[in-house]
Amino acid sequence: MIQIETLATRVSGLYAALEESGRRAIEALRQTDPALVDVLVGAFESEAGASAWLASRTTGFGGRSALELLAQGERAQVVHVLNHLRYGLCA
């Protein structure tokens, strides 16, 4: 059982680091792309929800995170998905 407890503690730490990365990404985007932050927060109705989504990998992005796509210059794809989530727009 000790191994499970150790792994659970490690996973908890990883999730905390992921949440912190999302918050830091929102702060960085606030400086470089405030319009995108507005779209993110509008889609999730909270900064916490937006930052969690930003850092989480999703099947909609082929197992990548929105943050990874933004780093690769794929802002339009991220905005497209955000608009779909917010307004139910179809491609």
Rank of each mutant, 00 (worst) to 15 (best):
R57W: 01
R64M: 07
A25G: 06
R86S: 09
I4E: 13
G42M: 02
A52C: 01
G22R: 05
E20L: 04
G63N: 06
G49D: 14
R24Y: 06
D33Q: 05
A17Y: 06
A16V: 02
A52P: 03
A76C: 03
D33I: 07
A50Q: 05
E45P: 01
S12G: 15
A91H: 04
E19C: 08
S46P: 00
L69N: 02
A71D: 14
P34E: 11
V39A: 11
S12P: 00
R64H: 07
R57K: 04
E74F: 01
R57M: 00
Q72F: 12
E27L: 13
L54Q: 01
G60R: 15
L89F: 11
L7F: 13
I2N: 11
E45Y: 11
R64L: 04
L89N: 11
S51I: 04
Y15L: 15
C90A: 15
E19V: 14
A55T: 08
G60V: 08
L29Q: 12
R30F: 00
W53Y: 10
F44A: 14
A71E: 15
A76G: 07
L54K: 02
E47M: 02
S46F: 05
S65A: 10
A43Y: 05
H84F: 12
S12F: 09
I26M: 06
D33V: 01
G49P: 01
A55G: 04
G22A: 12
G73W: 06
P34S: 15
A52S: 11
M1T: 09
A50P: 02
R64Q: 07
L85C: 04
Q72C: 13
F44S: 09
A76K: 05
T58K: 13
F44W: 10
G62A: 14
A52V: 09
H80M: 07
A43N: 04
S56N: 05
T58I: 10
A25S: 13
G88E: 09
R24L: 15
S56R: 08
R24D: 14
Q31T: 14
H84N: 12
V39S: 05
A17L: 05
R57H: 00
L89G: 07
L69S: 08
Q72L: 14
I26N: 00
R57T: 03
L14G: 04
A91P: 11
I4Y: 06
A55R: 00
A35P: 02
L85R: 11
T6W: 12
A66F: 05
T59C: 01
A66Y: 01
D38Y: 08
S46W: 07
L85Y: 10
V41A: 03
G13K: 06
G49A: 15
G73Y: 01
Q3H: 11
L7W: 10
D38V: 12
T58F: 08
V11F: 03
Q72T: 07
E74H: 04
L18E: 11
C90I: 15
G73M: 09
L14R: 09
L54A: 02
S65C: 05
E47V: 09
